[in-house]
C-alpha cells in the first residue's frame, strides 16, 4: 500500500518533468528533421540532417546576430558587475551622507513596469542619434538595481573589522575595494554575471524597439523577423534558429547550475 502511494508521487514528478522538458527535446529533434518529413510526426527521428541549418545560414545573417548577442551580453554584464558592485560597496560599507534616501529612490525604480519606459527611452535614443546602433543596445542597460541589491546584501555580511584594519594601515577606499572586497565577493559576482549574461542574451523587447536594420538585430529579435506571418511559419528553420540560441544557455546552465540556484534564492530566502 505504502509502496504504491510513493509510486504515484514519483510518477507525478516524472510526468511533470517530461512535460517541462519536452519542448526542448522537440525543438532539437525538429531542427534536425528534413523539411519534407515534418508533416509526419516522428518522436524519435530515423535520420539526422543539417538542411535546416544550411537554409538558415543562407537566408539570414545568423553569424552577425550571434556576434551582436554575444557582444551586447558581454558588455552589459561587464558594465553591470562593475557599477552594481561599486554601488553595493558604497551602500554596504561606506554609507555616505544621504545614502538611504538614494537607496530607496533607486529601489523604487524596480516597482515600475518597463512599459512606462519604452516610449520615452525610444524617443531619447532617437534624439541622441543612437537608434539602430550598439550604443542603444548597451549603454542604457549597463547597471541594474537588482544586481546592486544582491551585491549590497552580500557585502553587508563581510566583517567590519576588515575595513577598520585596512583603514589603520592607511588603505584608501579604492584600494580596499579592488584588493579586498572584490576578491572576497567572487561568488556573488559570478551569480550576478551569469544572470545578466543569460538575461541579456534572451532579452527581446528593448532590442526589438531600438534597432531596425537586419544587421543590428540580436538573435531573438532576428529569429522573430524570420516569421513572415502568424499562420505561415517554416518550423524546421525556426527550430534550427531556436536551437542556436538555446543550446549555449542550456550548456551554461549545466556548467553553473549551483550559481543559477543561488541567484534564484538570493533575496527570496530568509537566512
Amino acid at each position: 500500500m505504502k509502496f504504491s502511494y510513493k509510486m504515484i508521487l514519483y510518477a507525478i514528478l516524472t510526468a511533470w518533468a517530461i512535460a517541462a522538458m519536452m519542448p526542448i527535446y522537440w525543438m532539437v529533434v525538429t531542427a534536425f528533421t528534413p523539411q519534407s518529413l515534418l508533416m509526419e510526426i516522428q518522436l524519435f527521428p530515423k535520420s539526422i540532417v543539417f538542411n535546416n541549418f544550411e537554409t538558415l545560414f543562407a537566408k539570414a545573417p545568423i553569424d552577425r546576430w550571434l556576434f551582436n548577442s554575444l557582444l551586447v551580453s558581454a558588455l552589459i554584464t561587464l558594465g553591470a558587475v562593475v557599477s552594481d558592485s561599486m554601488a553595493g560597496y558604497s551602500y554596504a560599507m561606506i554609507k555616505p551622507k544621504g545614502h538611504m534616501v538614494i537607496f530607496f529612490l533607486v529601489l523604487a525604480c524596480l516597482m515600475i513596469p518597463d512599459q512606462i519606459r519604452i516610449v520615452p527611452l525610444f524617443i531619447m535614443i532617437k534624439n541622441l542619434g543612437w537608434y539602430n546602433t550598439y550604443a542603444a543596445l548597451i549603454v542604457p542597460f549597463m547597471s541594474s538595481v537588482f544586481g546592486m541589491f544582491l551585491m549590497r546584501q552580500y557585502m553587508s555580511s563581510l566583517p567590519r573589522e576588515l575595513m577598520d584594519a585596512a583603514r589603520v594601515e592607511g588603505c584608501n577606499e579604492f584600494v580596499f575595494y579592488t584588493r579586498i572586497v572584490v576578491p572576497l565577493c567572487k561568488p556573488v559576482f559570478a551569480v550576478v554575471a551569469i544572470f545578466f549574461f543569460v538575461g541579456t542574451w534572451n532579452s527581446f523587447l528593448y532590442p526589438l524597439i531600438l534597432t531596425s536594420s537586419k544587421e543590428m538585430r540580436t538573435l531573438p529579435v532576428g529569429l522573430s523577423t524570420l516569421m513572415e506571418n502568424y499562420s505561415l511559419v517554416d518550423y524546421g528553420l525556426m527550430m534550427a534558429g531556436s536551437s542556436i540560441s538555446a543550446i549555449p544557455v542550456i550548456l551554461f546552465f549545466f556548467m553553473f547550475q549551483k550559481y543559477f540556484t543561488k541567484g534564484v534564492t538570493l533575496g527570496a530566502v530568509k537566512e
Binding site: A17, M21, N202, L223, S245, A246
Partner: peptide
C-alpha cells in the same frame, strides 16, 4: 529539470 525551460529566451 523544472528550471531548465526558464533559462531559454521567451522568444525561443
Amino acid at each position: 529539470a523544472y528550471y531548465l525551460p526558464s533559462v531559454l529566451a521567451g522568444v525561443v
